[in-house]
């Protein structure tokens, strides 16, 4: 075991960040586990120009949903249960990262038999607590901005440290 560990620590080309699973991005284009929250951006079902920023906080399981302009989500009056945006966020996060990783991050005890985002939401009993939307939205824009950066055909030798690896087995 120690020899394995030493060999791992002395390798140059390794996978450090677990890959995410492909999923449909149409409804929830952005999901991340960051800043102590499961947070993301949910496209409005009715207005193509509008998006919601939704989040669950790790530990307290407080949840928040508002438009990117910081207007509270109409479907989330205080004291109610999570709106459909939050349900979508949880469902897509489970697809992207797997239930275990999301539950571990949020510190939710999902127990046996849980498999979906709905199971995850049902095992949290936090309260509404407004979280700042602007930060998450700007991280989403930064994320989108990668697709605006032009490609290049000058070789990047540094990418040899980042081999494309197969699915985690």
């Amino acid at each position: 075991m120690n020899a394995d560990r030493a060999a791992w620590e002395q390798r140059s080309a390794l996978r450090v960040v677990s890959p995410v699973q492909p999923r449909k991005l149409a409804k929830v284009p952005f999901v991340e586990l960051a800043d102590g929250r499961l947070q993301g951006v949910v496209s409005s079902g009715s207005d193509i120009e509008r998006v919601y920023v939704s989040s669950f906080t790790a530990g307290t399981h407080a949840y928040s949903c508002s438009t990117n302009n910081n207007r509270p989500c109409g479907a989330l009056p205080s004291g109610s249960s999570p709106c459909k945006h939050l349900h979508l966020l949880a469902a897509e996060a489970v697809l992207q990262y797997g239930l275990d990783r999301v539950a571990r991050y949020l510190r939710v005890d999902v127990g046996d038999g849980a498999s979906s985002g709905a199971d995850l939401v049902s095992r949290m009993d936090g309260q509404v607590e407004r979280a700042p939307a602007a930060m998450v939205f700007s991280r989403f824009l930064r994320h989108l901005n990668y697709l605006e950066v032009p490609d290049t055909t000058v070789p990047i030798p540094e990418m040899h440290w980042f081999p494309a690896l197969g699915a985690v087995r």
Binding site: P19, V20, Q21, P22, R23, L25, Q96, H143, L144, Y146, L147, V149, D151, T152, T153, V154, P155, I156, M159, A164
Partner: peptide, 20 residues
Amino acid sequence: RASVAAPKVDTIVGPALWRL
């Protein structure tokens, strides 16, 4: 050798990479 590199995001994986 001939290389092409493109920026992407983590949710673009698998065969979709070629579309970049």
